[in-house]
Nucleic acid binder design. Structure first.
Lengths: 148, 148
DNA sequence: GAAAATAAGTCAATATGACTGACGTAAATT
DNA sequence: AATTTACGTCAGTCATATTGACTTATTTTC
């Protein structure tokens, strides 16, 4: 049994999320804000429904953090040009800066990890994490990541 | 920038933790209980201080979940034979059963992921996750995992 | 054109898991 | 004898999440 990977996943994720936490705290934000900001930043024009599906949280949980991000000028909302019921989400320059700053921090940790490893490790890590996702979710995730 | 791995880590961890969540809910437990039960199960005789260091939470956060696990007969406490201030933690048969059931569930997901991948992927995944951990924490983690 | 469905927002109440800071007790170490 | 350590606990707070119900605007369906 791959108990080593079970435990390593816990420790790796614990430290992986701790990098942004420090910066987020300065802004009065938490991890929930980070996740919203990240996916909006990477997918401009995302709808609220899409975000709920990605994060797998309820509308009410999203509402509070999204409202804060909008009120404080990190995220913009505008009605969909075709379907005006939709509120398409984009980052403001301020929001984009913060999102990129947090992404760089997490990317650096990953790059350092890969630098210490054999050629081709990025691809293996990608495959491993991809196959850890529920099979019926993989398509959605692949589509979301590809377009970036 | 390895943005793919940033996002894949999020999705992989989201689904990885969702397996045990279903079972835990039946017992009225949450993820915090799972983490405590897991590390006690894998490291019988663990001290409270050790657990605090592993989980990186405060004594107060641990207290509630640990008390529940003890009160409901999943974990046992006994004074250290040498240093009687210590409370060494072990699982009861009930606790061990639950811990192993949850571990099997997470192990199965990992094994299925690895089965779909080239030979040697387990080792690469291990290295990747290991290097994602803060350098100054790696020794502790390695020691914790090895003994199992 | 009326009815139904959808996208989003909101209200109220609640649970879980975490935090800070302070204090107490027993046992071991200096 | 004084200090440190291991553990437990009290009180108050915060962040993130939940369920369920309800409203509004808009689009789709019949």
């Amino acid at each position: 049994m791959p108990i080593d990977l079970i435990e390593l996943l816990f420790f790796a994720y614990r430290d992986f999320t701790s990098d942004p936490d420090t910066i987020l705290a300065e802004f009065g934000f938490g991890r929930a804000h980070h996740r919203v900001l990240h996916f909006v930043s990477r997918n401009p024009g995302l709808r609220v429904t899409d975000l709920l599906g990605i994060l797998r949280i309820t509308k009410q949980s999203l509402a509070r953090v999204l409202k804060q991000l909008i009120d404080e000028g990190y995220i913009l909302q505008e009605p969909g040009p075709v379907d005006r019921r939709e509120r398409l989400l984009t980052t403001t320059p301020l929001g984009q800066d913060l999102a990129e700053r947090l992404t760089r921090l997490q990317a650096r940790r990953i790059q350092r990890a890969l630098a210490a490893m054999p050629e081709g490790s990025h691809e293996i890590a990608r495959q491993f994490l991809y196959h850890m996702i529920d099979p019926d979710q993989r398509g959605d995730v692949a589509r979301l990541i590809e377009q970036s």
